[in-house]
Design a protein around this nucleic acid. Structure first.
Length: 463
RNA sequence: GUCUCCUUCGUCUAGGGGUCUAGGACACCGCCCUUUCACGGCGGCAACACGGGUUCAAAUCCCGUAGGAGACGCCA
């Protein structure tokens, strides 16, 4: 039998990077086992759910190449079904109506807590046979014995039923709670394996009781550890970036995110760079670790640098275009394409890459302070020499030709190449870090090079 | 507070009784390459939380302790 798994995010916030990992694991599980990967939007909290968040969920999954197999289920459209199940449970005696007011319950809870006792609904309405439809419906949970989960990641976990509460299934306004709707939907969607964050582990016991009360087969569970920030607390905004959208905007490639997330908490021997095909071939729940892991930005960056280098220049260029501050012409695009090899060896993110491209499209708008080191009389004299050398070269030139001529010049003048090269870099780029100056000249051409050098000399002259 | 889970270099992890003087990757530090910065190459630093067992033998199995995390809503 082929597994059916699902990813069931709630659009009450921007898609968390940890949720993305859950989606990935579910997807890989389905693809590895020839099963189906389904999507369900859990939008029953109408107040906090937004269209924008829902849109972003689809967008991010597409961006990552995580495709789904059937029409996504929108949970809010299934309200009638949820209600129906709750009513049936009341009829069958596995649930009951409760008319304790929220205020009463809050008071009881406060009292219990102040006495240092664990709070649990006291079961006041459990056997009262209330018919008032304004009441909530609670699960009549088992009072003794225990409930066991054989989790595919966590192993066998047992909880005493006395610990479990009579949870609310249907609110007084007739809408289902999360506990009810997940169980009903997972059952109706024929979900065989539930792979989700381990913050749901304790919910599982309550949910199993609902499955049993309804006489449904419980699916298999796999609770994967959460992702934490560098300080060990749940990864959130204050750690910098917690949503998948953030990472996309920061210039991380989708293949980087997939690979990183896969490797976080899961391993296949010593493999670090894992292609999509390998991931599908190798993925197995058995290799998921049980301990939580911290998100390491440096490692993410390193991986991203790897994938940037690995992309072919044309696709990298088109991916980068939206990151550019200004639109560029076709001629400029060609320049960037030529310079891409040099550019991509240095970039950690696409944002870096986009920023670094400016040397190929425009003259420096300002010069870094460090450049003044190469604005001495000696350097200016050398730059004059460079200009004469370049003027002597006609037509299109290659990087090698230019390098050759400049090396000869250095030799003639009895200076080290670095002195000339850095002065040229300051003039051409306005800073002392850039791709090869000879390569830059090849791409921007002699004329523009001479212009930039002249501007630099004029600028130092004014100072 | 109650319940549940977790614990190998700073971080992600390999390992599942002897092959472990614990392997890899990122980070960090050197050196090499070099027109800068990167890339790349070579090398270095660095961990089995603690205490008891079991065993000829324990990072690996068992029990405690400590620390960390999660769940305890008419949120999902």
């Amino acid at each position: 039998m082929f597994p059916r798994v699902r990813f069931a995010p709630s659009p009450t916030g921007v898609l968390h990077i940890g949720s993305v990992r859950t989606a990935l694991f579910n997807w890989l599980y389905a693809r590895h086992n020839g099963g189906k990967f389904l999507l369900r939007i859990e939008d029953t909290d109408k107040v906090r759910s937004t269209e924008q968040n829902t849109k972003l969920i689809f967008e991010i999954l597409e961006w990552l190449g995580i495709d789904w197999d059937e029409e996504p289920v929108i949970q809010s459209t299934r309200l009638t079904r949820h209600r129906e199940v709750a009513e049936t449970m009341v009829e069958e005696g596995t649930a009951y109506r409760c008319c304790c007011s929220p205020e009463e319950l809050a008071a009881k809870k406060e009292k219990a807590l102040s006495n240092g006792k664990p709070y649990k609904y006291d079961g006041t309405c459990r056997d009262r046979n209330i018919t008032n439809l304004q009441s909530v419906i609670r699960l009549k949970s088992k009072l003794d014995g225990n409930t066991k989960v054989t989790d595919l990641v966590q192993g066998s976990v047992v909880v005493e039923n006395s610990q479990l509460d009579d949870i609310v299934l249907l609110r007084s306004d007739g809408t289902p709670t999360y506990m009810l709707s997940v169980v009903v939907d997972d059952h109706d969607m024929d979900i065989t394996h539930i792979i989700r964050g381990d913050d749901h582990l304790t919910n599982t016991f309550k949910q199993i009781q609902i499955y049993e009360a309804c006489g449904w087969t419980t699916p298999s569970f796999a609770h994967i550890p959460l992702i934490y920030g560098p300080d060990g607390a749940k990864l959130s905004k204050r750690h910098g970036a917690a949503s998948a959208v953030d990472y996309r905007e920061l210039g991380y490639l989708p293949e980087t995110i997939s690979n990183y997330l896969l490797r976080l908490g899961w391993s296949h021997g010593n493999d670090e760079i894992i292609s999509r095909a390998e991931a599908i071939e190798w993925f197995d729940l058995k290799n998921i670790g049980k301990s939580p892991s911290r998100f390491d930005m440096k490692k993410l960056q390193n991986l991203n640098a790897h994938y940037i280098r690995q992309r072919d220049n044309a696709s990298l260029l088109s991916y980068m275009l939206p990151f550019l501050k200004e639109q560029i012409s076709e001629a400029e695009e060609k320049r960037l394409l030529r310079g891409m090899d040099d550019l991509k060896a240095r970039a950690k993110t696409v944002v870096d890459l986009a920023e670094a491209t400016t040397v190929y499209v425009e003259a420096p708008t300002h010069y870094d302070d460090a450049c003044s080191k190469y604005a001495t009389d000696i350097h200016i004299a050398l730059l004059h020499d460079v200009v004469s050398v370049l003027d002597g070269i006609s037509g299109s030139v290659t990087e090698e030709q230019i390098a050759q001529s400049i090396k000869e010049l250095a030799e003639q003048q009895g200076v080290k190449l670095i002195e000339i090269a850095q002065a040229m870099r300051a003039a051409l780029c306005g800073r002392l870090v850039s791709p090869s100056v000879f390569q830059i000249i090849e791409i921007i051409g002699i004329k523009e090079t001479v212009n930039r050098i002249n501007s630099f000399m004029a600028y130092t002259n004014c100072k």
